[in-house]
Simulated assay, not measured.
Amino acid sequence: MKYTHQEMDAFYKKLEKKWNEQIHAHTNNRNFTLAFGRAMDAHVKRIRIHRRLTTRWLKHLNLPNKDEISAISVRIVDYEGKLDFLDETIYEIKQSQQKNYTQLRMVKKSCEALLSVLEMEARDIHDYKIKSLESELLELKQLFHKDYLKMEEKNNDKNN
Results as ranks from 00 to 15, higher is better:
115 L>M: 03
113 A>I: 08
48 R>K: 14
35 A>T: 03
58 L>A: 00
63 L>R: 00
143 L>A: 12
63 L>T: 00
81 G>A: 00
120 M>F: 09
65 N>F: 00
10 A>G: 02
152 E>I: 08
46 R>S: 13
67 D>I: 04
90 I>Q: 06
137 L>E: 00
107 V>H: 10
93 I>T: 06
96 S>K: 12
15 L>V: 01
17 K>A: 12
89 T>C: 06
32 F>L: 08
75 R>T: 00
26 H>R: 15
74 V>C: 06
108 K>W: 04
106 M>V: 13
83 L>Y: 05
91 Y>H: 10
144 F>D: 05
26 H>K: 15
108 K>D: 07
50 H>Q: 11
12 Y>M: 03
142 Q>G: 09
10 A>P: 01
150 K>T: 06
151 M>Q: 11
155 N>D: 09
68 E>S: 03
115 L>Y: 02
126 H>W: 01
105 R>Q: 11
14 K>E: 10
116 S>H: 09
133 L>N: 09
66 K>L: 11
29 N>M: 01
54 T>F: 09
21 E>H: 03
139 E>S: 05
95 Q>L: 15
159 N>D: 12
4 T>M: 04
72 I>H: 04
83 L>A: 10
157 D>M: 09
16 E>W: 02
11 F>P: 02
53 L>S: 12
52 R>L: 03
38 R>G: 02
120 M>E: 13
138 L>A: 11
3 Y>S: 00
136 E>I: 00
69 I>Q: 06
59 K>H: 05
30 R>D: 14
84 D>G: 09
68 E>Q: 05
123 R>H: 14
3 Y>R: 02
91 Y>A: 09
78 D>Q: 02
64 P>E: 10
107 V>P: 00
139 E>L: 06
157 D>G: 08
5 H>E: 10
3 Y>P: 04
31 N>R: 15
84 D>F: 04
144 F>L: 10
21 E>V: 07
138 L>E: 14
19 W>C: 02
29 N>C: 02
132 S>C: 01
90 I>R: 09
108 K>T: 05
43 H>N: 14
91 Y>F: 07
114 L>A: 14
129 K>V: 15
129 K>W: 06
103 Q>L: 13
112 E>R: 01
137 L>R: 12
49 I>V: 13
50 H>E: 10
104 L>A: 15
97 Q>L: 13
117 V>Q: 12
34 L>C: 05
102 T>Q: 14
38 R>F: 05
45 K>A: 13
